[in-house]
Write a protein that binds this DNA or RNA. Sequence first.
DNA 1: TAATTATGACGAC
DNA 2: TCGTCCTAATTAC
Length: 334
Amino acid sequence: MPEGHSVHRITRQFERNFVGHLVHVSSPQGRFAEGAALLDGRRMTDARAVGKQMFLGFEGDRWLRVHLGIYGAWDFAGDILLDPTIASANGRMGQTNMRGTFLDGPNPDAVVLDAAGENSLTSIGAPRRTRLRMAESEKEGDTAWSFPPEPVGQVRVRLLTDTVCADLRGPTACEVLDPAQVEATVARLGPDPLLDDSAEAEERFVSTVRRKPTPIALLLMDQNVVAGIGNVYRAELLFRAGLNPHTPGRLVPEETVRELWHDWGRLLRVGVETGQMMTMDGLEGEAYRAAMANRDDRHWVYKREGLPCRVCGTNIVLEELGARKLYWCPSCQA
DNA sequence: TAATTATGACGAC
DNA sequence: TCGTCCTAATTAC
């Protein structure tokens, strides 16, 4: 998924476009019909992200909890106001093909504009192409997209205001909760450095890790230990720390654990601001351009099995750990 | 057209 | 450690 940075970006989109508005809630697919009925017609009052979970608050103390799982995504359509705190796809809008060719590459939040540059459709979540909307104009002489757009595919939930439409598909969790249930869910999660970068949060992470015999690679993926890290950030954080993924948590030097915490906060902030999982900082010139332009040039080890380590030249190793793929450099992370 | 894959997580053994 | 759930794009045949 959609690791922590995506969920924070999505939440900001909801804050900017939905909070304060009356929302028509429906389930085009039908599988969330009951939940939709509980929320339909209410005003959205809040939008929160904790790790990979998002909570949308509605008047009457009802909350929608969404977890995108491994391939869920939100598609936004309509007159979307881009949150000023996140780098939008603005830079690429001018290059939008009038036919609605999908845009990918530098920014995983795909954006498509119509010919007039007004209606837009953005997708945040699982990496995939935004649905292709061929302009009818080529043949029909009519470019305008109707609003709201016809649901395409398996839309579990549609949230609709006067001007903006958000479609959710493929979530692993989507349910209506009361405030106590929200608090209980959040309480079970480890600290999220974007929500709390206090010394207490750091201590909580450090003490948990240093108590466990579990391999550090598994602890970083454990949402109860630290929230928001997924398979990509896990591999990259371990490489950046020069840490062997199999090291038991309690044997990782305390300084290294602290370093992991701060590095996660750093990567998360960059991810939220840019929409990219850029894990190689300090790049300059051609290397930077390559990293921006090509997903394959953006990471130290993730999905680079069999390729030479960018630092030492040793072949990157791929192994299965806890049913997930773990990428690492056996030399740099000895 | 089918198989494969994906940035998750849960519950049953 | 497995099987299971959720969806769509890509790759293989």
